[in-house]
Every structure is written in structure tokens, then in C-alpha cells.
Amino acid sequence: MNVFRLLGDMSHLLAILILLLKMWKTRSCAGISGKTQILFALVFTTRYLDLFSSFISIYNTTMKLFFIASSYFTIFLMYSKFKATYDSNHDSFRMEFLVVPVGGLAFLVNHEFLPLEILWTFSIYLESVAILPQLFMVSKTGEAETITSHYLFALGSYRLLYIFNWVYRYYFDGFFDLIAVVAGCVQTILYCDFFYLYITKVLKGKKLSLPA
């Protein structure tokens, strides 16, 4: 555990808390992509099956359980409790366009051809693109609530910090996981446009809106 990894995890945790707080306080999930949240639940479920097979630390187990539980709770809020506020018309990205190719790739490019390993690889690839329905939704409506942009910024920061973590681990621990690094870089690159808008607009007190 190094400082970048810890900050990354905390940023990820913060993103989830911001999202839950936004929905709970405003009693609404307007502007949030249910597709992205379903994909995240799938990511956590397939990645953390190792909860049953290996123990790393109390910290690791606690975080995994929280990520899984919060992702399903988010889906419950969006598709049940606050269903009336869910903007499904703008959430039109097709999940199968991501899940199917990513599933195929996980079968072809993995560290070991074992069920748990393929599922882990699937989750890594899927996480890298799971934000696309959310970004698609923002671009379709042309705007995002400020709280939603804070959520996206925290989520993007998490992956950027993980890249610093991998650089650190490469030099100081001799650790290098090509699959995680490539997917993590792809994931971070997807946020670049958003980061630019966040820094130039939201941090200056303006709402995040895209040019028409």
C-alpha cells in the first residue's frame, strides 16, 4: 500500500458517497446513468469473487464488500425507490455494445485461462469503459449538475491516482500488471475531456455545460 493507492481508493470511496448523498438528499437520480451503475455492479461482482477464495487484509475485504453493497443499493435507488426521477430517455447507451466485446476480449487476452481469472479480466476491461453510458448521457443532455460533476471528477481521479500507484509499484516493488495498467490508462483517457471541462468550468463556479 502506497500513498497513491490509498488516495485512489479514498477518491473512489468519496465518489460513491457523493453519488449516494446526491440521490438521498435530493430524493432524485436525475442525470445519473443507470446503465453505468449496472455495469459497475457487474464489475464489482465479477472482480470480487475472490472474497471466497483469498484473504488479503481487513481493509481489502471491507472495501470490496462496501463497493459491492453500494453498487446494488444504487441500482435499487435508481430502479425502485427513485424510479420516477430516473431519466431513462437520455440513458440510451446500449450496454451489450460494451459487455459483449469486453467478454470476448477477456477470453482471448488474460493472464491465465481459469474461470476466476477470466472473470477478473472481464471486470478490469469492463470497468475501463463502464463510464461511457454516463458520459454519453452528459453529452446528450449537454449538461450535468454540479454534484454529478464532482462525482465524475472523484471517479476519474481514482483511476489517475492508480496510474501513479502502478508507476510507484513498478519501481519500488517490481510489480507490473499489463492488463490492469493498459485498461486503467484507457479508463483515465476517457475522463480527459471531462477533466478539462471540470477544471475550466465547475471549479470556476459555473455549471458544467457543453457547447451546443
Partner: peptide, 10 residues
């Protein structure tokens, strides 16, 4: 080799 991709990250 196993160590190079031990999944200790979240």
C-alpha cells in the same frame, strides 16, 4: 509469475 498478477488491488 503468480506474484506479478496477484490481485491485491481493488
Amino acid at each position: 509469475k503468480a506474484d506479478s498478477h496477484s490481485h491485491d488491488e481493488l
